[in-house]
Design a protein around this nucleic acid. Structure first.
Lengths: 205, 205
DNA sequence: TGCTTTTATTGAACATTGTTTAATTAAAGG
DNA sequence: CCTTTAATTAAACAATGTTCAATAAAAGCA
């Protein structure tokens, strides 16, 4: 069917949606293997058998692609959280949650690192979908700590959930960047965070 | 004295140490104005009236330069902390510390952002001086919370200081990257962090 | 002084990025 | 069968960090 030696011109072997999917899966594989800094547009294109130009037909730029990848990572963590039973005691629910988080980041350090490390160029702001994804994760935390709060304390509950999320994030960010004192481990710090929070909520009105 | 039109060849108008100092000061100015992503080797060189090659005579690479800049930023924050009176009540000391931190990051967002955003290329590890700088800052936190601890609880005190530092870091990192729910403010979250920690330590044995 | 050695400095080149675009050609529509 | 549309490529562009041969000023020394 092909006359020349190249694939110049329209092929349409994949729909734009398929191309997006392939690019995102390729990007994930590259990040898993080489980290976010090893991810390049040419690398993605090569892995899916296209050239860079085609990527720019389905993504505005590489940051948008990475942001989408990160949204999927966060959604994946949340879907794992959704399978936990967080209806009982808040202290135990929090411990379950934090252990799931620790396990995920331990098994997929490069993938979680991409979430932490990715910065938008100045002037750009994140897509609404990113905030939605994070919000849903924070809602899981809200659910876990709900027995600490009365029904009319929605604002406090949300504030605490955001605080726990930010603290978890900070510990992980420093740990994966090798910026903690060497004898501190992620596990120890996260456990301490959770137990400190539980203490504050348990023996205090 | 000069024959050609250029400054090719040895000038020695500045010692290597002076050159380092000039480069770091220029880098700080650029970061203050344009952020870390606006910092380039050519930009630094231009600002100090040299070309890039000279930078590579006093720094191994640009990451080392940025790391040195960040060390100086952290040291600066610590020197401000050192002027606080942290001998009294731990709760109030912590509040003082956190307010100083908030004020510094509010006044110098770009500078603190450089501390947060700078990542080393894979394979490289941070200089010992970086860890020293952070350790000294954590020691300030240790001092602030010391009245919560008995004399033999050094490990716990250090763990808590690292936890507070990591949590503060996480809140700031998410906030400056525009990654918090929009209605949460840095101030609110940091206050909540401090008050939660105080509650855990105060009404609990 | 004059010759050699050392070294600071430059300009240009290189490699790697993200991104854009003109050329091309397969598919779609009539 | 002709025209239009749109997918795809190769090549180019701009910006980056980094390296290096060429150069000339300084330093050492006779």
């Amino acid at each position: 069917m092909r006359i020349g030696m190249t694939d110049l011109g329209r092929r349409a072997e994949h729909t734009p949606e398929q191309l997006r999917r392939m690019a995102l899966d390729a990007a994930r594989n590259i990040v898993l293997k080489k980290g976010l800094s090893g991810l390049t547009t040419r690398g993605i294109a090569k892995e899916i058998g296209y050239t860079v130009g085609s990527l720019y037909q389905v993504f505005d730029n590489v940051d948008q692609l990475i942001e989408q990848l990160n949204i999927e990572t966060i959604d994946h963590v949340r879907s794992m959280c959704d399978q936990l039973d967080l209806d009982g005691d808040a202290a135990n629910s929090l411990r379950k949650l934090s252990h799931l988080y620790i396990e995920f980041t331990r098994k997929n350090p490069q993938l979680w690192n991409a979430v932490i490390d990715h910065k938008l160029p100045t002037g750009y702001q994140r897509q609404e979908a990113y905030f939605d994804s994070v919000s849903k994760l924070v809602e899981v935390v809200e659910k876990a700590i709900s027995s600490f709060f009365k029904d009319d304390e929605l604002a406090s509950r949300n504030l605490d959930a955001n605080l726990l999320w930010a603290s978890l994030y900070g510990i992980t960010a420093l740990a994966t960047a090798g910026r903690l004192a060497r004898h501190e481990t992620t596990l120890t710090l996260i456990d301490r965070l959770i137990e400190t929070y539980i203490a504050a909520k348990t023996h205090h009105e």
